[in-house]
Design a protein around this nucleic acid. Structure first.
Lengths: 213, 213
DNA sequence: CGGCAAACGGAATACGGCTTCCGGTTTGGA
DNA sequence: TCCAAACCGGAAGCCGTATTCCGTTTGCCG
């Protein structure tokens, strides 16, 4: 319950354990998703449950910490993709080539599909901005169809991540198969006509909030 | 715990209540997925929790009953699609036009992605067979790419169902948007090369079992 | 109509997972 | 080296949800 203010100096073992817990949580959540138990996180970190709960007063807090680091890493990849000169290549690379995006995607996907996500992490907004730009540039370059929005793209890829979460060692391969199929479906050639309008993140957010009621 | 053998004659109110419970469960699970509470099912059916648990000794049993009726209805749609003369049209219709498939897809999708699914419902196998045939025929007719298998197709569409589960009234529209994008990606023209091999249901089953360990 | 077994409702129980609490241990400074 | 404060582990408490139990009601049959 104590906010554990970050300005106060901590003991060496405390900061060490916090790191361990965070790393273990990242691993465990990646494997088992949100349903993973905090006791498993504690075991994997080599500490007691009490320690986990002191550093992260609630499971939700732990999840948020993991998600933040995940979003940061994905955001960095998005920025790299944006830094390149070829928009089409950057778009593809972002959705295929990122090991972090893939390996850690299970919670990520669950989070995206999760109506409980009330807490808006600031880094998440930045990522949404970067993805929007990636999509817009690829569209401007004629690499992908223009009747879709950034939130459409995001939903499609999180769907793939979810569907392939059950696969074992085949997982990375399946993921790439389905990402490539969707990329083929996103090309402007042979595009069939879609109902509705391109979906952006603000509409997606509104939908979620409406449903949460 | 008593198996409630089906040959023994039942009282009229018992069979009526069983129907009500099943209908309520179908509704509730469709709305909220597996996380729906049995008390809510009881309330919606206008009976007490005890009644629900007598007819379906465990929540799992209730879920299976709902899934079975769901699979049956989808299977019927698949057979209709197979009965037509144009394989390409049958394939598309199956994946776009079926209101049951769409409306009830939430548990359906969760079930497909769920490693707990140890119990092999017989009707499920039949459905897998029908889908396999639908895919094979469409491929033979040159309507979809040949480097994918029936389980690939199944995973892709269950992914869409999951990703759009959060959407409110926009849900049907989004679903159709994404189904169409994937159908575009499944066409033989402009298909990029995929890693790995076409996935069939027996491989998918093996993956799930391995992971369950 | 009367009796009785089946079925009902919902309060009580069981259970699994998160969170808290406390006696013992470690750290870091004097 | 020694002490106080910070920190640790894990048992105990708590909470939400599925399941069971039992007194009461209801349909069925003679």
């Amino acid at each position: 319950m104590i906010p554990l203010s970050s300005d106060r100096p901590r003991r060496a073992d405390a900061v060490r354990n916090r790191e361990r817990v965070l790393a273990a949580a990242e691993q465990v959540f990646a494997e088992s998703g949100l349903k993973a138990q905090v006791e498993e996180v504690a075991r994997r970190a080599g500490v007691g449950v009490g320690t986990v709960c002191r550093h992260f007063p609630t499971k939700q807090a732990l999840v948020e910490a993991v998600l933040t680091s995940m979003f940061e890493s994905v955001l960095e990849q998005a920025r790299e993709a944006l830094a390149g000169t070829d928009p089409a290549e950057g778009f593809e690379r972002f959705f295929i080539n990122l090991p972090e995006f893939h390996t850690r995607h299970r919670v990520f996907a669950e989070q995206m599909a999760n109506e409980l996500e009330l807490t808006a992490l600031p880094v998440r907004n930045e990522l949404m901005g970067a993805v929007s730009e990636l999509v817009a540039r690829a569209q401007a370059a004629g690499a992908i169809r223009t009747d879709i929005g950034p939130a459409d793209v995001s939903l499609l890829f999180s769907a793939v991540a979810h569907a392939t979460a059950i696969a074992g060692e085949l997982q990375p391969m399946l993921r790439e198969r389905y990402v490539r199929i969707i990329l083929d479906g996103l090309r402007p050639d042979n595009a069939s006509v879609l109902p509705g309008q391109p979906l952006d993140f603000s509409q997606l957010r509104r939908m979620k909030q409406r449903r949460a009621r």
